[in-house]
Design a protein around this nucleic acid. Structure first.
Lengths: 238, 238
DNA sequence: AAGATAGGTGTACGCCGTACACCTGTCAAG
DNA sequence: CTTGACAGGTGTACGGCGTACACCTATCTT
């Protein structure tokens, strides 16, 4: 069995194996635990070995992003633009929920990876096929922003938190401790109004999925209205 | 003059002076250059001296965020909700453009600072005074997400980039090198369609302010429509 | 005069990313 | 069958990071 472990450890590294291990590590221990040293240890290898497969940590992150972009569902066939876009964004959101570190990783990157560009490109393609002018499609992409990738866009998204992703972290009594409620009455009102089952907790009591779709549909409906009325930018020549 | 420098250096530290210096350093050298050691050096002091004024680096970041939240204009008086919200968000956006590191800093924090809660609270207050139910106000806050803080929300926002903020970084020929245009034709079409003056560059050729306001008004108009028709959540009891 | 206290200092530790020299097993060419 | 190139894992080392902890030294109170 020592033999077996040895064999397992000796499974040759590869860029793919490195990236997968990195994604798993980030999923389970949080992005801030993803160091070259920790990752190497998980792979039973010395840190510098990784550099034979990824140029540096930034490239590792890019690779990880590409891995999870690959998890987004392809466009559903034979549907109108709105449904295609909506479904795809919701799929992207599921991916982001599975990999809470990804939102931060993507945002902190300053160049898009090819896989990401490919995804965005196909989204624009969907719009164009749906009858959007390039002009309107362009503004739509801006308007959707990172929501195109299923970003929840919360100001403070508990799910992004550090270690051990969502597992075994009920975190129940945290959010609105009465003194804060006095200081921020409107926020308190909103938080409690939203709680359907149990009261008292802000990030807990409200249905994130509902909120996401609310915003998404608000945007999509507005966009559909613009499309129907043949909106064109007509902005001042400046 | 050595005397003078000495005196200057000896100006006693204070939490406020530390925070200001940190903001300046991040503005000028980029957030990744903001280390306790660099900051201490700018202040003519040994790194550990800072810890007499801020508990740790996270608290330093929180303090910096509070500083710039304080730069957002107060609500304009005697205006309808839409104008108040719109103006305030645009003011927040100006602040974020002045401090490109702030978006990342805010997003990577996982608890809101008091100043930030105060700002959000007053935004909700504006909505309530404008006739929104707490229910609708709640969803609106979610829908606006970090746009409430003037986030540009671009997927890849060049202005957030690393060092020396926007100064002396024309970065003109960067973005669409023809080979990419072939691979991502829709993105290429969008990028070139948007360029009014000069063609060819994506993040350069398009008018960020226009895009921001486009998305903002899309949301605000949709929200106004919901308000007028007395929208109520009526989501399934689940 | 004494002693508390606030605030700046110096040293040290454990983490990080990664440059660089090195070793080793595999495989192709001679 | 030898040889040598080369891919890929190893070991050491460096400079940077955040910060714990012990220390020193003005200043202010009593």
């Amino acid at each position: 069995m020592a033999e077996q472990a040895e064999t397992l450890r000796r499974t040759p590294l590869s860029r793919d194996r490195v990236l997968r291990a990195a994604v798993t590590l980030a999923d389970e221990a949080g992005i801030e635990s993803l160091s070259m040293r920790n990752l190497a240890q998980d792979l039973g290898v010395v840190p510098m070995a990784l550099y034979k497969h990824v140029a540096n940590k930034d490239e590792l992150l890019d690779g990880m992003i590409d891995v999870i972009v690959g998890e987004i569902d392809p466009p559903v066939p034979d549907a109108d633009w709105k449904r295609v876009i909506r479904e795809r964004i919701l799929s992207a959101r599921e991916v982001l929920l599975r990999h809470p570190w990804a939102a931060i990783a993507i945002e902190s990157r300053n160049e898009a990876t090819p896989a990401l560009l490919g995804y965005l490109n196909s989204m624009v393609g969907t719009l164009r096929e749906g009858g959007f002018s390039t002009d309107l499609a362009h503004h739509v992409m801006h308007a959707m922003g990172s929501r195109m990738l299923g970003f929840s866009q919360e100001l403070f998204d508990a799910s992004r938190r550090a270690g051990r992703s969502g597992i075994a972290e009920p975190d129940p009594p945290a959010a609105f401790p009465a003194e804060a409620a006095a200081q921020f009455p409107h926020l308190a009102a909103i938080a409690t109004a939203a709680a359907h089952d149990d009261t008292s907790v802000v990030g807990q009591g409200c249905d994130d999925q509902f909120e996401f779709e609310f915003a998404l549909d608000l945007l999509l409906d507005g966009i559909e209205r613009l499309r129907q009325q043949g909106w064109t930018s007509s902005r001042p020549p400046r």
